[in-house]
Write a protein that binds this DNA or RNA. Sequence first.
DNA 1: AACTTTCTTAACGAAATGTTAATGTATTAT
DNA 2: ATAATACATTAACATTTCGTTAAGAAAGTT
Lengths: 232, 232
Amino acid sequence: MKSNKRILLVEDDPNFGRILKDYLTINNYDVSLAVNGIEGFEKFNRSDFDLCILDIMMPFKDGLTLAKEIREVNEEIPLIFLTAKNLKDDVLKGYKIGADDYLTKPFDSEILLAKIKSILNRKPNVNNDEVDIFEFKFGDFNFNSKLRILEYKDGDSYKLSPKENQLLKMLVLNFDDLLPRDIALNKIWRDANYFTSRSMDVYIAKLRKYLEKDNSLKIINVHGEGFRLMKE
Amino acid sequence: MKSNKRILLVEDDPNFGRILKDYLTINNYDVSLAVNGIEGFEKFNRSDFDLCILDIMMPFKDGLTLAKEIREVNEEIPLIFLTAKNLKDDVLKGYKIGADDYLTKPFDSEILLAKIKSILNRKPNVNNDEVDIFEFKFGDFNFNSKLRILEYKDGDSYKLSPKENQLLKMLVLNFDDLLPRDIALNKIWRDANYFTSRSMDVYIAKLRKYLEKDNSLKIINVHGEGFRLMKE
DNA sequence: AACTTTCTTAACGAAATGTTAATGTATTAT
DNA sequence: ATAATACATTAACATTTCGTTAAGAAAGTT
């Protein structure tokens, strides 16, 4: 399953912020709303966003200052500024910091959407330092997590579902080591509770079934802690 | 020495065009001015530009039509639209074609400059001088994506429509690897939503029909991710 | 204007995926 | 030993995604 793009929205007007957040959510973005620059910067640092929408006029820490701080940490992330007035000076400062776009309130929500799409589509982040490894070997299996294919030495192969795939990948990346339940749940299910935990058990069972071809491989449970993929 | 960035300016008002050209020239851009869409397209094809500024309202061929033509030839070049009116419909059409920005006349020249800088800076010249490959062989097919011809070894050949052609080209460029749905949709349809996705499926079906002559070739779906052209 | 090609949209069945429930087994604590 | 908690497995169900056909809209040609 494809995950939505994540937007950090920093807007001090709670009514407007709420409405805008809902509108973007309806249009399939995961939106995190902060009500001022300080909270905005904290949220920015706590997770990965694909785009930031910043109100310029805000108490405590205005949008331009926040933008500067964000730019120090991340040179790539697209920034869109919102402002009530069409203050030329602010606009110029914004572009200088590296704004990608600029909207004057009141603005048309459809146009904001179009801008967001345009910005997010134009480059699938050329600058991705971290190489995503997606080919693994363990036991008598080859595992391609990009194509979601698990292949046994005899040529048999299974198409993995997204969840199976993610879970197996995490197990393999922690081969012979503990994969803590919580970590896997929060990463794959984005929440750790009774139900997601049950669901994870179902998927562990599915993976065990795949892996039983190579009977030296085991997914061991560590009671109350998590699982461990190992070769005996 | 660093050479100036080259801008194609298409503007039918000769006075305004002249002034804008001079202003940009003073600010170290090499500007080529065309007075309508037809001349604009000719100039565009005659040399390499880094950015286009297009007036929307023009006689003979308007800016949006011109933009579409430019996009068919060059998917990367940034486009900035100018318009006298703030016509929402035009704005949205513009973004759909792949506009990078949008300015309503009268606008502030400094702001235009700032936008230009912002746009030109954000790709630290990924300057893809890379030759566009357009001749491919895969399975028992020869495929010329410039002529949009798919030819089977027995001499049979199909004329591909633009969309068929683009899609097949992306599949071939990712031969045996995943072509993510989103990437293809955003590149070919310039938007990823339910309808464009359905449309893409229709085109996948068409391509499968062409390819079934060589039954070792398959377009495999990776559920929720995309497609993979492979030879088994 | 008539014709052709291309593209989009609708409709709907099929397949894949994910969640929850139900039930049983293992582990731990007391 | 027994109760409580955690884990395992299967199956039923709901949801999402995909494949295909067909109708008709839009664009391009003759």
